[in-house]
C-alpha cells in the first residue's frame, strides 16, 4: 500500500483545524438567534453536512456513468467512496434537522420537502449498499451499483419536486414555520459562521473522499491478490 501522500496528511490536519474553527464560530462567535435560541446553531453544521451529502450523491451519479462508459474499475472504487461518505454525512444532516425541529416546532419530524427528500435519498443509498452486498461478482456489482447510483441520483430532484406538490394541499402549521426558516435573516456574524462551515465541510469532504478512495484501492488490491494466491 502506497504510503500516505504528504498532501493528504496536510489535508487531514487542515480538516481538523478547520473543523475546530468552524465549531468555535458556530458555538461561540455567532450570536444566539432570538426566536429559537441556541439550538439554531446546529443549522451551520446541518447545512454543511447537507452540502457534503448532496455533493457526494451527485458525484456518484456521474461516476456511475463514467464506470458504465469506460468499464474501468477505478470509477467504481471512487463511486463507492462518494456514496459511503454521503450516506454518513446525510445521516447527520437528517438527525440535526430533526433535533432542530423538536424545540422549534415541537415535533421530531417535519414532512417538509427538504427533510423528507433527504430521508428518501438516504434510503436510496442505503439500498445501494444492500444491492452491492447481494452480489458476489465484482464486475457485476460495479455495473449494477453504477446503474442504481444513476437512477437514484436522477430520482432525487424529482422526489423533491413531487413532495413540494403535496405541501401545497396540506394546511400545516409546520409549513408556515418552515417559511420563516427559509427567510431566516442572518446577521453578519452568522453569515461568517455559515460560509465558513460550508468551506470547512467541503475541505472535509475532499479529505475523507481521498482517504476512502485509498481504502477502496487497498481493498481492491487485497481482493486481486486473494484470487491470485488462493
Amino acid at each position: 500500500m502506497t504510503p500516505k501522500p504528504v498532501l493528504l496528511k496536510i489535508l487531514d490536519y487542515l480538516s481538523i483545524v478547520l473543523l475546530a474553527v468552524a465549531t468555535y464560530l458556530a458555538l461561540v462567535y455567532a450570536p444566539t438567534e432570538a426566536v429559537m435560541g441556541d439550538v439554531q446553531r446546529v443549522f451551520y453544521f446541518h447545512i454543511g453536512t447537507a452540502w457534503v451529502g448532496l455533493l457526494g450523491f451527485v458525484f456518484a451519479a456521474g461516476l456511475g456513468i463514467a464506470y458504465l462508459v469506460t468499464k474501468d474499475m477505478k470509477w467504481d472504487i471512487v463511486e463507492v467512496a462518494a456514496v459511503e461518505i454521503s450516506v454518513v454525512f446525510f445521516f447527520i444532516t437528517i438527525v440535526l434537522g430533526s433535533v432542530w425541529a423538536r424545540p422549534a416546532w415541537n415535533t421530531w419530524w417535519t414532512w417538509d420537502p427538504r427533510l423528507t427528500t433527504a430521508a428518501v435519498t438516504e434510503l436510496i443509498y442505503v439500498a445501494y449498499f444492500m444491492l452491492r452486498a447481494g452480489i458476489d461478482d465484482p464486475e457485476r456489482r460495479a455495473r449494477f451499483g453504477a446503474v442504481y447510483a444513476l437512477l437514484g441520483g436522477l430520482s432525487a430532484p424529482l422526489t423533491f419536486m413531487a413532495i413540494r406538490l403535496f405541501r401545497s394541499i396540506h394546511p400545516v402549521v409546520i409549513g408556515a414555520a418552515n417559511e420563516n426558516q427559509d427567510k431566516m435573516n442572518m446577521t453578519g456574524d452568522m453569515r461568517v459562521a455559515f460560509f465558513f462551515a460550508l468551506f470547512t465541510f467541503t475541505v472535509i469532504f475532499i479529505d475523507m473522499f481521498w482517504n476512502r478512495i485509498r481504502l477502496g484501492q487497498l481493498q481492491d488490491k487485497v481482493e486481486q491478490l486473494k484470487l491470485k494466491v488462493m
Binding site: 458555538l27 435560541g37 441556541d38 446546529v42 453544521f45 440535526l96 433535533v99
Partner: peptide
C-alpha cells in the same frame, strides 16, 4: 425572552 434550547444544541453537536 429567547427560549433555552441549549440541551438540543448539545444533543445536535454530540450526534455530529
Amino acid at each position: 425572552s429567547t427560549p433555552d434550547t441549549s440541551q438540543y444544541l448539545i444533543l445536535g453537536y454530540a450526534v455530529f
